[in-house]
Write a protein that binds this DNA or RNA. Structure first.
Length: 400
RNA sequence: GGGUCGGUGCCCGAGUGGUUAAUGGGGGUGGACUGUAAAUCCACUGGCUCUGCCUACGUUGGUUCAAAUCCAACCCGGCCCA
């Protein structure tokens, strides 16, 4: 049971859950563990995976995971942590995102490889909350709204900040916590998993369950993973994520440079390694962490290869070592000046940017620095098969 | 609906008639350096096959030799009042 908890959970939380487990055992049934995800993006990243790892632990302990696809609530958007009203998504976008999520969670894969156990009967229910939310009529909605006050809503940090700073809050956003809470009623949840930032919403679930005469769920709040910047929460919109679907090399290289201060969090939240077992040298520790996390997704063998590749890449031998992506010259009109070439081949966003890069000394052809943006190439045969380089990381082999 | 303040480049945010894509910060990219694609320092950061030419300060018109800056209408938002 202890393994259901990350470090840092207090004892009484432990006991409350223990009591819940005992009660369920007495009734001879598994716990219903709710985890809601809003299919608002298309990629699951490591920050999410903490929750899924925990949910999986419950599954493996014999309980039932209730994965709620917030197909209805996604159309409102969770105001949590948002400084602005979220754009509402269409049904089609939401459905497409949901499909991608399920695939990334391992639908259709054997449970040994998947993040969640989709195989064992009784261990997983996938529900869409439109199932019960889309059918609510106005009297029911008014009933829900009646269970909370404006004061309570404004006490929520995100709302109060926005209100205080004069950022608009649309009325329907107040509905979000209520609807998410109602999900708990609809699926009769014993436990709800969420990040610590979900405290308000999870608590709302408890209030509503009480309102509807159910026993209240236990909220298991897990720490939020800091992003690659080591400061803010890992979140797609901040661009500090590591995606679950990223290739091993990119995953490893990103993790390898996580700030020293965040390494222990990553180890505790994403791996089963004990931090004492690791080298003291921070650089070595980073590498060990990156290796372990990559391995937990792709297996040790692949992770080790990524580690080696990453080292080679940084060594600057990329052009020779790894496979250089190709770039077609078909869109280039000859004669072509150097700056135009970089933009036409797609290595620079614009020809003006290409000029700047060349002036900044970033451009090379076959390892030789290009200094004049106006240097001219008269035909395809001048460039065919050669490697064009921008900075240390971007290489393209030119093909006709 | 009334009053009032505001809408500036990827983001935040200066600028309130007159060189110049428009101060500063963040982010991003590049360079140097290094235990790392870290930290630090430096440079660049609208577009265009570019010694010049275009397009930009909510939208559309107007005043002016000249507007992000003045005027009008409209759209969007904050606050106060109803």
């Amino acid at each position: 049971m202890a393994d259901l908890f990350p470090d840092g959970q207090s004892d009484d939380a432990d006991q409350a859950l223990a009591a819940r487990l005992a009660a369920a055992e007495l009734e001879g049934r598994p716990l219903r563990v709710k985890l809601g995800i809003d299919p608002t993006g298309s990629d699951i990243h490591l920050g999410h995976s903490i929750l899924f790892r925990k949910l999986r632990a419950f599954q493996d302990a014999g309980h039932t995971a209730i994965l709620i696809i917030g197909d209805f609530t996604a159309r409102i958007g969770d105001p949590t942590g948002k400084s602005a009203t979220r754009v509402q998504l269409t049904t089609e976008q939401v459905e497409a995102n949901a499909t991608t999520y399920l695939r990334q969670l391992g639908q259709g894969q054997p449970k040994e490889q998947a993040l969640l156990d989709f195989e064992t009967p009784g261990r997983l229910e996938v529900r869409r909350n439109s199932e019960w939310l889309a059918g609510l009529d106005l009297p029911q909605v008014i009933g829900l709204l009646g269970t909370a006050t404006v004061g309570q809503m404004l006490a929520k940090d995100d709302f109060s900040k926005r209100y205080g700073s004069g950022t608009p809050i649309a009325l329907h956003e107040f509905l979000y916590p209520l609807l998410q809470g109602y999900d708990s009623v609809a699926v009769d949840a014993d436990v709800e998993l969420g990040g610590t930032d979900q405290k308000f919403n999870v608590a709302m679930g408890r209030d509503l369950q009480r309102h509807f005469g159910q026993r209240t769920q236990f909220g298991l709040l897990l720490p939020i993973l800091v992003g690659l910047d080591g400061v803010q929460k890992m979140s797609k919109s901040l661009g500090n994520t590591v995606g679950l679907e990223e290739d091993p090399l990119s995953m490893y290289s990103k993790l390898e440079k996580v700030g020293d201060a965040a390494i222990n969090d990553y180890l505790i939240l994403l791996t089963d390694l004990a931090s004492e077992a690791l080298p003291d040298n921070p650089r070595e520790k980073q590498k060990a962490m990156a290796l372990a996390v990559t391995a937990s997704r792709y297996g040790m063998e692949v992770a080790q290869k990524a580690q080696v590749d990453a080292a080679t890449l940084v060594g600057g031998e990329a052009a020779a070592a790894a496979d250089v992506p190709e770039a077609s010259l078909s869109a280039v009109n000859f004669p072509a000046k150097a700056f135009y070439l970089f933009s036409a081949v797609g290595m620079c966003a614009s020809s003006s940017e290409a000029r700047r890069q060349i002036k900044g000394g970033a451009a090379r052809l076959e390892g030789e620095k290009i200094t004049d943006p106006n240097q001219e190439f008269s035909s395809v045969s001048d460039l065919e098969g050669k490697v064009l380089q921008l900075g240390k990381k971007t290489f393209r082999r030119l093909v006709p």
